[in-house]
């Protein structure tokens, strides 16, 4: 079996999509396949939300008043900060400053863990208030969206840990850091999804 990576492009996309003509692809193509798949998945959730809200306006008007806005805001601020930290990690690896890059990655990981902690507390608080997935149409959508997002933050946090390990082993430098950049893209995507989820489930009534 030929295990050599392909040297020439596959030629399945129009030449106008090539990096030479359309611009640089941050990270690498596989992570963008993943990101676009995730965006499709969340897109389906958002469409489901709007259909459910149209059909059950009462449940979606009362729902956001029942959940903890404080937990929602806190998690939004945490994820925005984590996006800032991972962007700073990218800046520092380009300067070949691995120490600072690692420090920013640890801050990103801390934000991810904090998010998971706040979300777990929120789920527990909901449980104590008697809210279940079947409490109302709002809560069905709420749990479906937020728990799914929770899982994404969970495995992305594990990926941050892996990237820190690789950074310490000298895998990334100012010249070659596509793996780190791929993770940064994925992490920003998770943040973007929360930016959309937050107003839908916590702000709009």
């Amino acid at each position: 079996m030929n295990s050599e990576p392909p040297k020439a492009p596959l030629g399945i996309f129009p030449s106008s999509w090539s990096e030479q003509r359309a611009g640089r692809i941050p990270g690498h193509i596989p992570i963008w396949v993943g990101i676009l798949s995730e965006l499709t998945e969340f897109g389906i959730f958002f469409v489901a939300y709007f259909i459910a809200k149209y059909n059950y306006p009462e449940a979606f008007s009362q729902g956001p008043q029942s959940v903890s806005t404080l937990a929602g805001v806190t998690n939004t601020l945490i994820l925005l900060s984590s996006s800032y930290f991972i962007a700073k990690a990218m800046i520092n690896i380009r300067l070949d400053n691995r120490v600072k890059c690692e420090a920013y990655l640890w801050l990103t990981l801390a934000c991810g863990c904090l998010y998971l902690l706040v979300k777990t507390g929120e789920f527990y608080w909901n449980h104590q208030q008697g809210f279940r997935t079947s409490s109302s149409q709002f809560f069905t959508v709420y749990y479906y969206m937020t728990f799914n997002h929770f899982l994404h933050v969970g495995w992305a946090a594990c990926a941050v840990l892996w990237v820190i390990f690789r950074l310490r082993r000298g895998a990334y430098s100012a010249k070659e850091h596509s793996g780190l950049e791929a993770l940064a893209m994925y992490w920003h995507m998770i943040d973007l999804m929360w930016i959309l989820i937050f107003p839908l489930l916590y702000v709009l009534r």
Binding site: A22, P26, I195
Partner: peptide, 20 residues
């Protein structure tokens, strides 16, 4: 907010046109 993250944190402003 979304466009700010795409342009400045993801740095897609000067990256691949179709991804942006």
């Amino acid at each position: 907010k979304g466009l700010m993250i795409i342009d400045h944190f993801m740095e897609l402003r000067h990256a691949h046109r179709y991804l942006r």
